[in-house]
């Protein structure tokens, strides 16, 4: 540069700027591809939503009755005498399994996250993080299989109950399934707490534990709440494992040993057997809309909370 200027005091503009060369086209092409990629995700999501809505709309406009849909425990779409479409038992199934799953997952994942973030370092920490991520990648059908073949006989044996496919079984399975991702996010939240807070607390004589529960946990509480909510969202949407481990029978549960049926599992199990466009078919899509709305709200809230953390 300096040499150039020394030779001619006002050098002409770099030629690269006034001609479109291959770099420029490549740049544009990449830009367009990125845009298509990005926009198509949005288009697909909207497309799916529209599709589900259209299919479910027939039901909402026809057989749908608000009080029956939300407050009747009878889901009898194939009844010969009178079909009923009540979600209460299914919602109770989903809620009880998800709730129980959180009882399992929250202490597990918070404990693991605290251990990884605050008590381990170096190789051990990396190893634990990779392991957790591997656990998160286990397909849900494998978890369902574990519920069927291992948990089921175990529960029958330990608690002397006739069936081991119930809330307890599915709750534990779902809890273990949700724990890895919750651990990951909770650990991120803990790591996001600046180290100078730890230093400050320790320099004043706080022990590790005092530091954790007086400083780190309160500072990370939004991120931790977000992690829990994402776990709840995961529980709500999970299908295969709950289909296999709940017993899949319609019940308003009164104990953890009752078999239940989940909203998602109902769609998965029945959709293949219904005539396209029938009331039953459309009712299943209406459940889909409901699930969509609930998970959307949960994820949105979780996202907002976690974002709140980032901003400070």
């Amino acid at each position: 540069m300096e040499q150039n200027q020394a030779q001619s005091p006002s050098p002409p503009l770099d030629t690269r700027f006034d001609r479109l060369n291959s770099d420029w086209y490549f740049d544009k092409l990449a830009q367009v591809l990125m845009f298509i990629g990005g926009i198509s995700v949005i288009v697909f999501i909207i497309g799916i939503f529209v599709f589900v809505s259209i299919e479910g709309f027939g039901f909402l406009a026809g057989k749908f009755e608000f009080s029956e849909f939300f407050f009747s425990p009878d889901w009898r779409p194939t009844s010969q005498t009178k079909e009923t479409y009540g979600l209460l038992a299914l919602m109770a199934g989903t809620a009880s399994v998800t709730g129980f799953a959180m009882l399992v997952a929250v202490p597990f994942s918070l404990g693991a996250a605290i251990y990884i973030a605050e008590f381990s370092s170096g190789k051990k920490r990396e190893f634990l993080k990779v392991t957790i991520e591997l656990l998160a990648a286990i397909p849900s059908v494998v978890w369902g299989f574990i519920g069927l073949t291992i948990m089921n006989p175990l529960i029958i044996q330990i608690f002397h109950v006739p069936v081991g496919l119930n809330i307890l079984n599915a709750g534990i399975i779902l809890g273990l399934m949700a724990a890895p991702i919750m651990t990951s996010i909770a650990e991120d939240a803990l790591k996001a707490v600046p180290d100078r807070y730890r230093e400050a607390a320790e320099a004043m004589g706080a022990t590790r534990w005092q530091m954790i529960y007086k400083v780190i946990l309160p500072a990370a509480k939004n991120g931790l709440l977000g992690a829990i909510l994402l776990g709840v969202g995961r529980g709500f949407g999970e299908t295969m494992a709950v289909l296999m481990a709940t017993g899949h029978s319609i019940n308003l549960p009164t104990s953890v040993f009752d078999s239940v049926r989940a909203l998602t599992a109902t769609i998965a199990a029945e959709l293949g057997e219904t005539a396209v466009g029938s009331d039953h078919y459309q009712a299943l899509f209406a459940i889909g809309i409901f699930l969509f709305a609930v998970t959307f709200v949960i994820n949105l809230v979780a996202d907002l909370i976690v974002r709140g953390v980032r901003k400070g």
Binding site: Y197, E199, A200, A203, G205, V215, P218, A219
Partner: peptide, 19 residues
Amino acid sequence: VQVRKQVGMVFQRPNPLPI
């Protein structure tokens, strides 16, 4: 704990706790 009670430390960057 006693050492740190007796010897207080102020850091380069102010580090009040987020409470």
